[in-house]
Nucleic acid binder design. Structure first.
Lengths: 247, 247
DNA sequence: GACCTTTGTTACAAATTCTCACAATTGGCC
DNA sequence: GGCCAATTGTGAGAATTTGTAACAAAGGTC
């Protein structure tokens, strides 16, 4: 009924291994905030495989576990009664999902393709955190970073036009991809256009048209809808910064 | 340059006393998550008075303290090079600011009118949390709630039209106001139209027009630009839920 | 009280995005 | 391979929001 009808529920957190949304500045300080402690907690945790479109958890499910993505892609989103959807994050291998939940999930987590996750019960996480105070601060820090990333997302969606939004998305995705050891110019987008649209608050048509425009402008090249080659990183960054706007 | 140029910085958190963005459902569960422990930490902390437009802290300032708003209104926002601004939250008396920051602030906090805050050093907070484990979980919980509120904000701004956004804002503000003990139908909006516009991702003209439309439709009444009387709470909720949209 | 600055409101032209329609492509399945 | 369903791409008109500009109202200063 209300737009804010599910706001009272607890949050679901996606924590990227090092960070979510760092800019393209010198990555020297990245090492200092490694997620090793957090990821190490999943040692020995049971693995689970999800098929395409299978849900890891849904809104209102009890938040019993946190999850480390090992393979594939998990799409975290929220739904509203009249069909509108907000994609909150895409969780890639190495990312942790569900940290920010309190007792009940406020978001859905769905596999965008065949994926594998490790599950760790919140209780086990709590127990480890009680023994290892360093993990406790790490958890808090991870949550704070997630908040910063969400605020950045909010800013992009709230203040930027279609081209700026998509350019920001491509740059952020490329950066995260590079952090997983991939070529920062060869970006794989395993999600559908509809997911990107709902992430950016646009329609799929606008996303598609903007992709085409970027290709025409020589900023990117696209193969098979999923493989994006970034031809002009600086140009894309200029668009993201508002090259079409004020700047 | 990049839109996401300051994304790598740590977050600044505004934690409302009980919660930020709860819906209008039965408030029975509110008591369970009281902020008493958190607020109690500020006992004996020094007070500081801020004049209108004075900053409590700025982006890139060292995040040395957390703050409890005692009077007035603190506007938390982020700026971009070309002048675009995103208001992240309005902190009312009872709200805590700065919890989510790591080492450096990523947002600015500015008094929207003559305000008073209590300051508590992060170190002192840490020390108390070390002694009182309950406070530690409370801090984590508060951060998680802030994340949920930000996601709700993201959703409203990303998926809703101007009328839905403003209606949501009015409802949320009224709810928070009621929680501070005020009449839920008599809402004081101490901030400027520009602040509301930047909070909702609209222009001041659109905000002004939408206010006028709500008044013409008999949903609200406005006096002196700041005192809003909600005449039709259900009608406003219907607009917020997408009465103009799909629904 | 007069003046000036800031803030808020309204009207209309301009721009962006959405909606709707349909073609092209992809991928799975028999 | 061929067929079907799902996804993606593209165009034209409609709707919403923005930008511009003029004016009204409020608040502070002298």
């Amino acid at each position: 009924m209300l737009v804010s009808a599910s706001a009272e529920l607890a949050g679901t957190l996606t924590v990227p291994v090092a960070e979510v949304n760092r800019s393209f500045r010198a990555p020297a300080d990245d090492i200092s905030r490694s997620n090793d402690i957090l990821v190490a907690g999943f040692d020995g945790a049971p693995s689970r495989t999800l098929n395409t479109k299978e849900h890891l958890f849904c809104e209102c499910d009890e938040a019993s576990h946190v999850y480390l993505v090992e393979a594939g892609l998990i799409c975290v989103y929220r739904m509203i009664a009249d069909g509108r959807r907000q994609v909150l994050d895409f969780a890639y291998p190495g990312d942790v999902i569900g940290l920010g939940a309190l007792d009940v999930h406020t978001a859905n987590a769905q596999a965008s393709g065949r994926s594998r996750v490790r599950s760790l019960s919140r209780k086990a996480l709590h127990d480890i955190a009680a023994r290892v105070p360093e993990l406790g601060s790490r958890l808090f820090e991870a949550l704070a970073q997630e908040l910063v990333a969400t605020r950045e997302h909010l800013f992009v969606v709230s203040q930027c036009n279609a081209a700026e939004r998509l350019a920001s998305f491509l740059l952020t995705s490329a950066r995260r991809s590079a952090r997983r050891g991939n070529d920062p110019h060869e970006l794989v987008l395993p999600m559908m256009r509809a997911d990107i649209a709902d992430y950016l608050g646009l329609t799929i048509e606008t996303v598609s048209r903007t992709f085409s425009k970027f290709r025409q402008d020589g900023l990117i090249d696209i193969e098979q809808c999923v493989l994006v080659t970034i031809l002009d990183l600086d140009g894309l960054a200029k668009v993201a910064a508002g090259g079409s706007h004020g700047a």
